[in-house]
Nucleic acid binder design. Structure first.
Lengths: 203, 203
DNA sequence: ATTAATAATTGACCGGGGTCATTTTTTAAG
DNA sequence: CTTAAAAAATGACCCCGGTCAATTATTAAT
């Protein structure tokens, strides 16, 4: 029969994640060293790897939790009626995702291209993001010739693309919001766009 | 005055990249170790880092060259008239990009989110991809309410998204081509879409 | 040729992630 | 209690990317 989880286990795990969060607050995600984590937690190095498969797994958990807290705030918004509303809702999350290059890399690695057998925390947040956005888009003022879920997936694709381009020195003259706005208008309002473009061409 | 590049330099560099290509042929990109590269090239470890900034820079060059060879073939295609034509042209490249998780990770790191100060080989290929596809889409049978370049960028975003999702065990029941086809139909043919693609995807 | 300046190479060394045989602690059974 | 099995923790060790002061090779000028 399987034994219950020991109190000790939970305590050690908590000490490790607490230490990690503390280090991140001081040095950023990029600056985290496992040796420093175990030192502050007062355990041996091997103990860390008994609790987390590797460094990435810890990052997955910590960054996933952070993304979740942004999604909590996004979830309670009323469905956006315009692209600008949508951007207002999503941008805080996207800014966190691009707070550090390392963070964005970790997110990319875990978002869909998850090496792990089971789905991890960050991958979960992507699914949740899809669900929240798809809910918004059902019966909204945007195109409805394709499923809301497909639209939500497209929003994710364009969000990631926008962040990636903005990390590049050559492309980051355009603010994230502006770039994403252009993508989302073309994606969510293909009709109104042509009208706008046409009238612009006429003028 | 700046001195000319020594013959020795070119020779050493060639020996290093040759060794690297050989190792990749045997063990894959993931299996490449710098120690093995320098051993086969018959030079010291430090020499490698005098020629390449780091391991990623070598990968950037090798993978970038590979992508370029796919683009060479893509470039000579006649502009696609249908989504299927487009997929036929692009899929070989996308399959290379997803041949190894590690390769896809390297590509993502270098595509736009380039840490490097200057633009690297892989980032160049992304720009080239954009240019080729934008050229195709100008005056094509697809939507023309937005610029061809924006359409090309969207194709890239959806390509990356499709590959990422396909690496995830949970999502890879849908073939890459099928998934991308759905995205591209919605992106490039927002009008015709409504009835056709939706019922097709369900079937 | 000699020499001074520059370029290329070397390999011992370091940092930090990850492993694993061994030891210590906890738990359940007699 | 005692004890045997399971769980948790330990830290010396390995792997491998990356560094750098010292050495060797090349070039240009006299």
């Amino acid at each position: 029969m399987a034994r219950a989880v020991q109190q000790r286990t939970l305590k050690t795990r908590a000490r490790l994640t607490d230490a990690a969060r503390q280090i991140i607050a001081e040095y950023g995600y990029e600056g985290l060293r496992i040796e420093e984590v175990v030192k502050r937690a007062g355990v041996a190095k091997g103990t860390f790897f008994a609790h987390f498969h590797d460094k990435d797994a810890l990052m997955d958990i910590l960054i996933g939790a952070e993304i979740d807290s942004y999604l909590d705030r996004i979830e309670v918004c009323s469905p956006p009626r315009t692209i600008d509303d949508l951007l207002d809702a999503l941008l805080p999350l996207l800014e966190f995702m691009s707070c550090e290059r390392y963070v964005f890399d970790v997110i990319l690695r875990h978002s869909g291209a998850a090496a792990c057998d089971a789905i991890g925390p960050i991958a979960e947040t992507f699914a949740r993001h899809d669900a929240v956005v798809a809910e918004w888009l059902a019966d909204g003022p945007f195109r409805n010739d394709v499923s809301p879920d497909l639209l939500a997936q497209g929003i994710q694709a364009f969000s990631v693309q926008s962040i990636a381009l903005n990390f590049c020195a050559i492309n980051n003259t355009v603010p994230l919001r502006t770039r994403l706005s252009e993508y989302l208008t073309a994606w969510l309002l293909p009709d109104s766009q042509s009208a706008a473009a046409h009238s612009a061409a006429r003028a």
